[in-house]
């Protein structure tokens, strides 16, 4: 479905990613883990078209995505839930969700999608007229995910969806992600909760200073001594 080939991304002089290659096939749930500053967000942003590609290619269903701007990419169903949620703080919950259905391919279905999101996240229905900025962290993450669902994702990339949440709220979010995958949405999950992430994903990539150092089935990664020492503190 998506393949990233030898991707290099620079911020000025600094190489944030060096020749990174990953492969995601339809229906899969893939994990991307790595320490702070290892380039996880950069990889997602490169796929979303937010940061320019220095070298390499991004291929989506036999089509090169290099140079596509984000507003065109989302029409293909490549949707990102950005790090820190990035809601529209002075818009209501409902307006935030509606903005998820902004792109023309999904706009006509917006009301229908909205009802679906409200039925999956009843708490958002109660708060639909509240400003998004006034919600709790867990509720904000739900808005962020609801907004992404409004865009009818085929590949959903989640950047640290449990950041700053209580263990209970985090577990809830992970459960929702698993449900979404069951419904057929392909998932790329970035998270610092390495244990939980590897438990629900099938394949994983490990980034270190912009370089892919490890990849494999999540079962294998869970047993890997390097993963254990670096990320699980064992």
């Amino acid at each position: 479905m998506l393949s990233v080939e030898n991707l290099t991304v620079c911020y000025g002089q600094m190489k944030a990613l060096r020749s990174v290659s990953i492969e995601i096939s339809a229906g899969q749930m893939v994990a991307l883990i790595g320490a702070n500053g290892s380039g996880k967000t950069t990889l997602l942003n490169a796929i979303s078209g937010l940061v320019p590609i220095e070298e390499g290619r991004i291929i989506w269903e036999d089509q090169s995505l290099n140079g596509f701007p984000p507003d065109k990419l989302c029409r293909k169903g490549i949707i990102q839930v950005p790090e820190g949620r990035k809601l529209f703080p002075s818009m209501t919950v409902e307006e935030n969700l509606i903005m998820g259905a902004y792109h023309p391919n999904v706009r006509k279905k917006a009301q229908e999608s909205l009802q679906k999101v409200f039925s999956s996240f009843p708490r958002l229905a109660d708060r639909r007229r509240q400003f998004a900025g006034s919600l709790s962290g867990g509720e904000q993450q739900m808005v962020a995910m609801g907004r992404a669902l409004m865009a009818k994702p085929r590949l959903l990339m989640l950047d640290e969806p449990s950041l700053g949440l209580s263990p209970k709220a985090a577990a809830e979010i992970f459960e929702i992600i698993r449900e979404l995958n069951k419904e057929g949405i392909t998932i790329l999950l970035v998270s610092q909760e390495v244990m939980q992430t590897l438990a629900i994903t099938t394949y994983g990539y490990v980034l270190e200073n912009g370089v892919l150092v490890l990849q494999g089935d999540c079962k294998q990664l869970q047993e890997d001594p390097k993963v254990k020492t670096s990320y699980l503190g064992m």
């Binding site: 701007p69 989302c74 529209f88 792109h103 706009r107």
Partner: peptide, 23 residues
């Protein structure tokens, strides 16, 4: 929609782009 995109672009331009707004 266009009016909402104007507000979205002002409040959170990056997220607006991710959801289809041409800045």
């Amino acid at each position: 929609y266009t009016g909402m995109a104007v507000r979205a672009a002002w409040q959170q331009p990056e997220a607006a782009r991710l959801y289809g707004v041409n800045l």
